[in-house]
Amino acid sequence: MSAVEPPPAAAGGTGAGSEPPPGAGGPGPRALARQRRRRAAAAFWRAYAANPAGVAGLAGLLLFILVALSAPLFVDTADLSVTRAPGSPYQPPSAEYPLGTDNFGRSVLDLVVWGSRVSLTVGFLATLVSVALGALIGVVAGHFGGWTGTVLMRVTDWFLVLPTLVLAIALATVLDRSVFTVILAIGITAWPTTARLVRAQTLAVEARPYIERARALGGGHWHIMGRHVLPNVMPLVLAQTTLMVASSIIAESTLAFLGLGDPTTISWGGILQDARNAGAVSSGVWWYLLPPGLAIALVALAFTLCGRALEGVLNPRLRERR
Rank of each mutant, 00 (worst) to 15 (best):
Ser2His: 14
Pro6Ser: 15
Pro7Leu: 15
Pro7Phe: 15
Gly13Pro: 00
Gly15Ala: 12
Ala16Ile: 12
Pro21Val: 14
Gly23Ser: 09
Ala33Ile: 07
Gln35Tyr: 11
Gln35Val: 13
Arg46Gln: 08
Ala47Val: 02
Leu61Phe: 09
Ile65Gly: 05
Val67Glu: 01
Leu73Met: 14
Val75Asp: 02
Asp76Leu: 11
Asp76Ile: 09
Thr77Trp: 13
Asp79Lys: 08
Asp79Ile: 04
Gly87Met: 08
Pro93Ser: 07
Pro93Arg: 04
Pro98Gln: 08
Pro98Cys: 06
Leu99Ser: 03
Asn103Gly: 12
Phe104Val: 13
Arg106Leu: 02
Arg106Gln: 00
Asp110Ser: 08
Asp110Asn: 05
Val113Asp: 00
Phe124Cys: 09
Ser130Arg: 01
Ile137Cys: 01
Val140His: 01
Trp147Leu: 15
Thr150Glu: 12
Leu152His: 06
Thr156Val: 10
Thr156Phe: 04
Trp158Met: 15
Leu162Asp: 08
Ala168Gly: 05
Leu171Ser: 04
Ala185Val: 08
Gln201Cys: 09
Ala207His: 09
Arg208Leu: 11
Ile211Gly: 00
Ile211Lys: 06
Arg215Glu: 09
Leu217Ser: 12
Gly220Phe: 09
His228Phe: 10
Val229Tyr: 02
Met234His: 10
Leu236Ser: 07
Thr242Cys: 06
Val245Gly: 00
Ile249Gly: 00
Ser253Ile: 06
Thr254Glu: 01
Phe257Val: 02
Gly259Trp: 05
Gly261Tyr: 00
Gly261Glu: 00
Asp262Ser: 05
Gly269Asn: 01
Ile271Trp: 01
Ile271Met: 07
Gly279Asn: 02
Ala280Ser: 09
Trp287His: 01
Trp287Tyr: 02
Tyr288Thr: 15
Leu290Val: 15
Leu290Asn: 05
Ile296Val: 11
Leu301Gly: 00
Phe303Met: 09
Phe303Arg: 00
Ala309His: 08
Gly312Cys: 12
Asn315Phe: 06
Pro316His: 07
